[in-house]
Simulated scan of single mutants.
Amino acid sequence: MGSFIREEEIVQYIKELVSIPSPSGYTEEVMSHVATFMEENGISFQRTNKGALLATIKGKDDSKHRLLTAHVDTLGAMVKEIKGSGRLKLTMVGGFRWNSVEGEYCKIHTADGKTYTGTILIHQTSIHVYKNMGEIKRDEDNIEVRIDEIVKSKADTEKLGVSVGDFVSFEPRVEVTESGFIKSRHLDDKASVGILMHLIKLIKQQNITLPYTTHFLISNNEEIGYGGNSNIPQETMEYIAVDMGAMGDGQATDEYSVSICAKDSSGPYHYKLRQHLVELCKRNDIDYRVDIYPYYGSDASAAIRAGYDIIHGLVGPGIESSHAFERTHISSLKHTANLLWLYLQSELIK
């Protein structure tokens, strides 16, 4: 059993990761953070042309490989237009709804390296002026950024160096409660990246020899659909995406267990691999839920679409209010880490 798992270390990795802005397309800083971690722990890795990171730990059998992936890119936005008032119109990066970021603090990252703060609001926010503000549609026409600088015109904002195409990141507001909850934006999927970082460190600290050479792909384009669909070594037999379990009405997933996905919008995941993961949970008292996500896709499904001949699976911690004000519990992180710890030391599917 994964008795070496230290949940507090996973939480610390998560807090560090969510505090680094990284909407898809703007991930260099967070990827450098992960690269530094790999260097400090003596892990061999390479950077891909797309900007992802592929770390490798050689196993006893180097002819058959495994790959685990988690993505470090997040939802965000870009400046679509500078309005006459000096405020900013946005375009989405990733799939969310504008109401989930209304009222959120944000940062504008300019091309010349400057950062400005702001707040995402509907244009008709003041109830004292706009009687029907509650009925206004939350869309690209009405959502705007109120930048925290003295700007009264488009020219004023342009003088700051803000321009169309600048990235906008959302404040995570990470908090860990005494009851064991981790509240933050971007737990999708930085919670999973934190888990993989912890497992990699444990493998090195405990001098574990894995049965098969294992790759850890930290992808940086998952939120826009193609993060884990390349740079998969040809020896790879099994590919597991470690990503959030989505919660809601009709779902089995909760915040306290590891979620094992049976099917998402791409279709069923590999049945025998799913059964293998379930058996590992049953034999080792790991709390798990098998679930189906109707509006979900993962890096594993992206790899299948790209034509890779692999056995694919999807597991991860249960995340409440996905793509919005996310939350999970430390027990979900623990159960996910324990399952992956055991999986990494198990035999391949036959």
Rank of each mutant, 00 (worst) to 15 (best):
L348E: 09
H65Q: 02
H215Y: 15
R274L: 14
E9H: 08
G248P: 12
G307D: 07
L277R: 10
S100E: 09
T74K: 12
N207L: 02
N221P: 00
E158D: 06
E255I: 08
P317E: 09
M237E: 14
R87N: 11
E255Y: 02
W341L: 12
A55L: 11
G194T: 09
K190N: 14
V258H: 07
L273M: 14
D141M: 07
S322F: 07
D243Q: 13
T117S: 14
K15T: 06
K272E: 14
P211N: 08
N99V: 07
S331V: 04
G113Q: 12
S192K: 01
S266I: 08
E223S: 13
T56F: 03
S163L: 05
H335I: 03
L53F: 10
H128D: 10
Q275Y: 07
K83N: 08
P317C: 12
K58G: 02
S230M: 13
M244S: 13
D112I: 09
K89N: 10
A35N: 11
D254S: 15
I20W: 04
V242A: 09
T336S: 15
V18W: 03
Y13I: 01
H33F: 14
F216C: 07
V162F: 05
D287G: 07
A246E: 05
Y296L: 10
E279K: 15
L199N: 04
N132L: 07
L90F: 00
H276F: 03
S346C: 13
V93I: 15
R305I: 06
L53S: 07
V129C: 02
R305Y: 09
I349L: 13
